[in-house]
Design a protein around this nucleic acid. Structure first.
Lengths: 158, 158
DNA sequence: CTATCTGCAAATCTTTTGCAACGGA
DNA sequence: TCCGTTGCAAAAGATTTGCAGATAG
């Protein structure tokens, strides 16, 4: 399926369009081959915002049912090495993949499991405080914070 | 083991449960039995500071080789419901258990894998900011922050 | 044409579950 | 005695690996 229509990229990255050609070029630069599977996985990550390999697999298989989950894992790995996606652990176990450019902090509700995103600049103060006190260089984009989301707090508290 | 009916108020604990007698009392209060395995697991968690089930199992088996890892998992679960230990996910996958009293924020270096601890009050500002902006009630003790520790930052930067 | 990729099956690894035997209270 | 607990084996779920055939360049 043609996938070039949904790329209303939240980020900017204006050098070249985020289209298939871009992926192809990035792959070739490192001696890898362009395949439909790779494009589909990258598209899925972009469409879903953040998702587990399982979820990404479902998304890809909706279009190309023959694609195996093994390929999803291998491709996510590759795309991560290419710097196109990144992953975070949101607790529990399932890693969570999202576009590398799309920087945000994940908020995980351990009541309902909902995952929200919030701008990284919320962390600025903590970040510099950690640097100062223990010399720890916080990776703001790889952080997952857990707690209770608004809905669950209201249900439980009220 | 069907214990779910007795555990819905888990999370609080008395402020003087340190010796074997206290564990025994805490268990009995909720209709559970005192066993050597349970004491060993709790001791292991306390001795190790923070550790994975695997690591805890090794520690317990050093004393009582017959204890099965299944029991470790079940016991950690129980101790957590009793509010005696808590677990955090430090990325990767392996959950990390520590004493419930021992409140701290985990800093995980994704360069060398080192896990440091830091006081929870570092998070106060972030905590109230999250509450205000998105109504998210941060669980400060369950947080793991990733980044680069002082040593790795110096090695890479200098 | 050739080396890279993919799909499949099987192997790992971690955690959970069913069940009969064991053992606290 | 009674029923919660344990150990073992097997199941379950997630990810990795080996390999032969498919395919991009």
């Amino acid at each position: 399926m043609d996938t070039s229509t949904r790329l209303d990229t939240a980020g900017e990255r204006r050098d070249d369009a985020d289209g298939p050609e871009d992926l192809k070029r990035t792959l070739h630069q490192r001696g890898f081959r362009m395949t439909p599977q790779r494009q589909l996985v990258l598209d899925a990550v972009r469409d879903l915002g953040h998702a587990t390999p399982e979820r990404i697999c479902a998304q890809v298989q909706a279009v190309a049912p023959a694609v195996n989950i093994t390929t999803i894992y291998r491709t996510l790995d590759l795309l991560e090495k290419l710097g196109l996606v990144r992953h975070t652990h949101l607790g529990h176990g399932a890693p969570n993949y999202s576009e590398a450019e799309h920087q945000h902090v994940h908020l995980v509700c351990h009541e309902c499991g909902a995952v929200t995103e919030t701008p990284t600049d919320l962390m600025n103060e903590l970040s510099s405080r950690l640097r100062g006190s223990v010399g720890f260089e916080l990776d703001v984009t790889h952080v997952a914070l857990s707690g209770r989301c608004r809905d669950c707090t209201q249900e439980a508290g009220a």
